[in-house]
Simulated assay, not measured.
Amino acid sequence: MDSPQGAAVTAEDFGLEGPRGWAFRSVTVEAEPGSLIAVVGPSGSGRTSLLLALTGRMRPTEGSAEVAGLPLPRKMAAVRRISALGPVQGVSELDPALTVGEHLRERALLQRRFDASLRALLRPRAERVTEARRRVHEALEAAGLDPATLPKRERTSVRDLERLEALRLSVALALIGRPRLLAVDDADLKLADADRAEAWRLLRSVAESGTTVLAVCSDAPEGATVVVSTGAVTDRPEDEGPGDNDTGTGTGTGTETDHADAETTVENTTEEGTADALAETGRA
């Protein structure tokens, strides 16, 4: 596929305070275009909130950050346009009731409708359909997912996918838009050692192709630019829901607890935000 120019990501004293306290605070990041950035730390310390803030989906409350030279929060809409979300719980999850083919077709349709230039929209329909199919094929190839190998090919339901296959599908959906920054939450969650290694090979390959990758994880792979949580974490059982406090104060690490604050601060009040929200449902 066409190699996008990756986005440089920088942040200094970056923080986000929500209704329940600080989601993350005092984050410093410096990563070149095409980097693999690993956000590590214990659950509940703001990892997902940091991921959403650096992709323009949540509004930070202190410090400074830039993505591809675009300052946050002033250029949040522009950052959303050049970034894409892989799997993020409660934000861009796959729909288990849909098939692989339905996800791909919906995402291609959203891409054509909301992200295409005026010139592209004026092209003959046959050319637009051909271009959409090419993008889907290239994205699947980059994500290492061949629908022909699935039990029911493209008619395989998401609920029947293995965890690694679901990750590959989510990454493929995001890559259809040819983003400069790809963000993936819980990249190594519930993966056996062999599958975890495959997941990191996938994300490293995406980074090497030119797209900067920002991945939340429990353990950073070798060679990644690491952002580590250094703050306190709420003491809660792992299976508690997102309604619990998220008071981490480190360099951004968290999973379920991040989404309670995300619901009140995700930027979606403009027309661009609405279109982005539709395009980031994960059902494409």
Rank of each mutant, 00 (worst) to 15 (best):
A262M: 00
G90C: 04
D95M: 09
S117C: 00
K152W: 13
L140D: 00
L169F: 09
S35Y: 06
A139D: 06
A262S: 09
A97F: 10
C217Q: 03
T130M: 09
V91Q: 02
A166K: 09
D246R: 12
V9T: 05
D2P: 15
A23C: 12
R155G: 11
L161F: 07
L70D: 00
N268P: 01
L145G: 03
G144S: 02
L164R: 08
L72M: 09
A174R: 06
P221Q: 07
R155T: 11
V9E: 01
M58T: 06
P87I: 11
L98M: 13
T269H: 12
P242A: 11
E271V: 12
S229P: 00
R134Q: 13
T269R: 14
D186R: 11
R112G: 01
E272S: 13
S35H: 06
G6V: 08
T255S: 13
G252C: 07
E256D: 13
A224W: 02
L181Q: 02
V100L: 03
E127V: 14
L181A: 02
D13K: 12
A199G: 08
T251A: 15
S117Q: 03
R134V: 04
T28P: 00
L278Q: 05
L36S: 02
G241E: 08
G241L: 11
A148V: 11
R153T: 11
R283C: 12
D185Q: 05
D235P: 09
N268Q: 14
A183R: 05
E271R: 14
R201Q: 14
A139N: 04
H259K: 09
H137W: 10
Q111N: 13
D246C: 15
G44D: 04
A207I: 06
K152A: 15
R123S: 11
R81F: 00
A7Y: 03
L98D: 01
T281P: 00
L175F: 01
E141N: 09
I37W: 02
K190M: 12
L278Y: 12
E263H: 11
L98R: 07
I82D: 04
R74M: 11
D2N: 14
R163V: 10
D235I: 08
G223T: 03
D13N: 15
V67W: 08
R155V: 02
W200G: 05
A224M: 06
A31M: 07
